[in-house]
Design a protein around this nucleic acid. Structure first.
Lengths: 340, 340
DNA sequence: TTGAAAGCGCTAACAA
DNA sequence: TTGTTAGCGCTTTCAA
C-alpha cells in the first residue's frame, strides 16, 4: 500500500519520531539526520497522510466556506480573494453551498461537530444568536463576510456610503427628482442603501419624496434583488406623470438591468431622458455601460482569511469590525439633467 | 473536551464497538441495544469525528474538484449540479481553483498523496499522460468534465453538433454568406466548433470561404475566448466590403458580446443588417437577446458525480465517454437574410 | 449479539 | 538529539 512514516523510518535507519521531526521542521533534530531522512522521503516519494496528521495534531488545515448558491461576480471575486490568500497558509477550502437559507445552520452544526475544519467563513448569510453562542463558547473560529453580528468578526461593505456616493453623483449632475428602487428592507444592505440615499438628499437640501421610493416586492422567499423585481418597480416609477424622476438609483445592478428594460420599453432613452445608477458592479454592468458602485470583494476575502488564520493560530482579540469603502464606477448611464 | 465514542459507550453501558455498530447501522446489533445507544447519542449530542472515521475506514467522504479560476455561468451551473448531487451521497467538496494551468498537476499530486479525498473531478483542464498513468495504476477515482482523455471517464459537450446547430439555424434563415469568429484552434472546443460550422455548410452545399473565418488572436497565454478578441475579430470581418457576411457564428457568447459592440460601432443593426449567434448561453446572452447554443452543465455535473461515486464504491468499468447534446436557444439576434 | 483489542498513520511527551 | 510509546477517535476482527 501507500508508504507510511514507518517505511521512511526504516529506510533512513531512524525512529518514526525523528521522521516526524524532519517533516515538521522541528528544531530538535540535527541537520545531518534531517538530511538523511529527507533523502529517504524523496526516495520513497513519501507524503504524510493528511487525516492522520489532522487527528494527531487536532488541526485539519481546512476551513469551511459557507455561501449561498452563488451566482454572479460578487461571489466569484470574493472566492478568488479567499482562495488566493488561503493557499499561502497551506489551507484548503471545504465548500458548502446553501440553496435554502434555513440550511445554513445545518452546515454550522456539522462544522462544529464533525471537526473536519479549523474554522468557518460565513458569506452573506445570517447566523442566529443561538449559534453565535456556540461558536463563542467553544472558541471555534468564524468570520462573517457581507454579514454582521455584534459578537463575531464581521467584514461588510459600507452600503450606506455607497448609496450616498451614487445619489450624490446624480445630484452633482443637477438632478433633484431622484427616484430609488430598493429591495426588501428586511435585508440589511437594502436598508442601509436607502439610508445613504436619504442622507445624500438631506445633505443637499433636497426634499425626500416618498413617491419616489419603490420597494421591489416579490415572494416572501426572495428579497427583491433580481431583474424582474427591478423591471416591475421601474414600471411603477414611470407611472408618475407630473414630476417624474429624471434619475434613479437602483439598489443593485441586476435590478437595474430590469429597470433599463422597462425604461426602453416606454420609449425613453438612457441617459438622455433618465439617468440610472446601480450597485454591485457585476459583469453585466460593464456590458450595459451602467454606472454603479463597486464593492472590494477581493480585498474582503483576503482580509477575512487573515483574520481567520490569526484566530486559528490562537490569537485572542475582540471581534474585528471592518466596513469596506465602496467606490463609484462611472460609465454611460448618467448624464446632466435635461428637462427641468 | 468534545464528546467521543467512549463517552457514549459509558453512558449507554456498552462497549465502544457496539456504539460503532449503532452509528453505522450494522446488522450485528440487537434493536434494543441500538435503541439504548441511540438514546445516549442524542443525550450527549454525539457526532463522530470525521477525521478519525476517515482514518479508520480509509475513506474521507470528500472529493476534490479542480477547476480553473472560474468566471461565468458555465462553472456556476456545473458546480450547482455537482454540489446538489454530491450531497445525496453525504460527500463534501474540497475546492481547488487553479489560476495557472500548469498548477493543475500540483493539485493532482496532492490529491493522490495526501489522501484527503476519495476521488477527483477535473474540470476543463488537461491531464498529462504521466498523471493519467498514476491514476489508472493506483485505481484512484477521477472523472473529467469538459475535458477528455482516452483512458479516463470523460464528460464533454458535443461542440461540433452545437456549432452545426447554430450554423444551420443561420442557413435556415436564408443566409449563405456566413462568417465565423473562433478562438485559438489549439483549444479542442474551438476546433470542434469550426468543424461543426464547416460541416453545416457542406451539408447545405454552401462553399466554405476562408475569408469568412477569423480566429481571435491574442496572447499565447489566452485562448481567445474573451470579449476583446471578439471585438477585434468582428472589426476585421466587417472590413470585407464586396460580399460581407450577412450573418456570423461566434464561438462563444463572451466573444459575441465584443462582436456586437463592433457591429454597433459601425452603425449596423442586429439582426437587420447582420445576424449573430453565439455559444454557451451565459447569463449575459439573455440580457443581450443573443441567440446561442446551450450546454447542459447542470446535468453534466450530476452525471459526473454519479460516475465518480460508483468508482469510489469500487465498481469497475471501462472509461465512460459521454458527450452531451447541446440545444439551440433562439432569441432576437438572428433574422431572415435581407440584402442579397 | 457483544466486548476487548488491534490497528489506521500520525504527533508529542517522555526517557534515555 | 534521539527512540519509544501513548494517545488522537474511530472501525473491525477475534473471541466469547
Amino acid at each position: 500500500m501507500a508508504v507510511t512514516i514507518y517505511d521512511v523510518a526504516k529506510k533512513a535507519g531512524v525512529g518514526i519520531g525523528t521522521v516526524s521531526r524532519a517533516i515538521n521542521n522541528s528544531p530538535k533534530i540535527s541537520s545531518q539526520t534531517k538530511a538523511k531522512v529527507d533523502h529517504a522521503i524523496r526516495e520513497l516519494k513519501y507524503q504524510p497522510h493528511a487525516l492522520a496528521q489532522g487527528l494527531a495534531r487536532k488541526r485539519t488545515n481546512m476551513v469551511a466556506i459557507i455561501v449561498p448558491v452563488f451566482t454572479g461576480y460578487f461571489y466569484l471575486e470574493l472566492l478568488r480573494g479567499i482562495q488566493q490568500e488561503i493557499s499561502k497558509y497551506q489551507y484548503d477550502l471545504l465548500l458548502f453551498s446553501v440553496d435554502q437559507t434555513e440550511k445554513t445552520e445545518l452546515f454550522l452544526k456539522r462544522t462544529l461537530q464533525e471537526r473536519k475544519v479549523d474554522g468557518v467563513l460565513l458569506i452573506s448569510l445570517a447566523i442566529s444568536d443561538n449559534y453565535v453562542k456556540k461558536f463563542v463558547n467553544t472558541q471555534f473560529p468564524i468570520v462573517l463576510i457581507d454579514s454582521d453580528h455584534r459578537e463575531l468578526d464581521s467584514l461588510t461593505v459600507e452600503n450606506e456610503q455607497g448609496a450616498y456616493l451614487a445619489t450624490k453623483h446624480l445630484i452633482n449632475l443637477g438632478h433633484t427628482r431622484i427616484g430609488i428602487i430598493d429591495a426588501q428592507l428586511k435585508s440589511i444592505p437594502a436598508k442601509m442603501r436607502l439610508e445613504g440615499y436619504q442622507k445624500a438628499l438631506r445633505d443637499h437640501k433636497i426634499q425626500y419624496n416618498r413617491r419616489y421610493l419603490v420597494i421591489s416586492d416579490s415572494d416572501i422567499e426572495k428579497d427583491g434583488f433580481n431583474r424582474e423585481a427591478g423591471y416591475a418597480a421601474m414600471k411603477q416609477l414611470l407611472q408618475i406623470d407630473e414630476d417624474r424622476p429624471t434619475a434613479v438609483f437602483v439598489a443593485s445592478d441586476i435590478q437595474a438591468a430590469g429597470a433599463i428594460k422597462a425604461i426602453k420599453e416606454c420609449g425613453l432613452n438612457i441617459p438622455e431622458d433618465i439617468s440610472v445608477i446601480g450597485f454591485d458592479d457585476i459583469e453585466l454592468a460593464q456590458y450595459m455601460g451602467l454606472s454603479t458602485v463597486r464593492q472590494p470583494m477581493y480585498e474582503m476575502g483576503k482580509l477575512a482569511v487573515q483574520i481567520l488564520m490569526k484566530k486559528i493560530a490562537g490569537e485572542e482579540s475582540k471581534p474585528v469590525k471592518k466596513r469596506f469603502e465602496t467606490r463609484l464606477v462611472i460609465r454611460d448611464s448618467c448624464d446632466y439633467v435635461r428637462t427641468v
